[in-house]
């Protein structure tokens, strides 16, 4: 069952008075539990596609369906809720809240919206879940440290745990290894892959790193806003 469907999606941006096409008619489907890489050089349109799947942008033409919902038909609150309940984000620059420590950063998405008001039983369950995730990403010793006290790899591990804390169906990762050295980058991707297997969470990540692309089960290659390759390994 497709959890994400893009049907003839086009996206144009205005650069002054000039219309610049970023995506020029893209169609593909992503299945639940996929570990998919959207690969391509800079300016190929991978970030634009990721933004649309992440309900942060809408297509100029065509439809983007996420978890059965056409994102063009949703208002700001509905897209916010869809992001909160369905999608976890891992950013290239980690984007941790600087004033919060590791535990609090991971907990933060649970405190947004309705998730912020829960019974003590659920709070206890959440605590156990956060501690489990911290153990999963190997940051038990750093639990009370703030982001500026962590290395790049550690920050990205926090970001992975934060992306998973709401138990999302999809995790979007925008160039997750771009700001990491190659060894740490590989470790991060391996960690994502491990979680993908354990939790059956769909991982969609953009990258231009060939090593990272090689780990993906499903690869979509883009060039100049068009798909040049859509390969599902083992298919």
């Amino acid at each position: 069952m497709a959890i994400v469907t893009l049907d003839n999606v086009k996206k144009n941006y205005m650069l002054g008075t000039t219309q610049v096409p970023a995506v020029r008619g893209v169609s593909f489907e992503i299945e639940k539990g996929d570990f998919i890489s959207i690969a391509g050089p800079s300016g190929s349109g991978k970030s634009t596609i990721l933004n649309m799947i992440g309900c942060m942008d809408t297509p100029s033409e065509g439809t983007v369906i996420v978890n059965g919902k056409d994102i063009s038909q949703l208002n700001d609150y509905q897209t916010t809720m869809l992001r909160h309940e369905t999608i976890g984000f891992i950013f290239q620059s980690f984007n941790l809240i600087p004033v919060l420590n590791v535990y609090e950063n991971i907990e933060f998405p649970l405190l947004l919206g309705k998730a912020g008001t829960k019974s003590s039983e659920i709070k206890k369950q959440n605590k156990e879940w956060i501690e489990y995730l911290i153990a999963e990403v190997g940051l038990e010793r750093w639990i009370h440290h703030k982001s500026n006290e962590l290395s790049g790899g550690q920050r990205q591990r926090v970001a992975i745990a934060r992306a998973l804390v709401t138990k999302p169906t999809i995790v979007l990762a925008d160039e997750p290894t771009a700001n990491l050295d190659s060894k740490t980058g590989e470790e991060v991707i391996e960690l994502m892959k491990k979680i993908n297997h354990e939790m059956d969470t769909t991982f969609i990540f953009s990258t231009h790193d060939a090593t990272v692309v090689g780990i993906a089960d499903h690869v979509i290659r883009l060039k100049d806003g068009l798909i040049t390759e859509n390969i599902r390994k083992g298919a």
Binding site: Y77, T80, R83, F91, N95, I97
Partner: peptide, 13 residues
């Protein structure tokens, strides 16, 4: 970036 991140993570206006 921080505010954008909070919005991306599901923080409402």
């Amino acid at each position: 970036p921080e505010i954008g991140t909070i919005r991306a993570l599901g923080g409402t206006k």
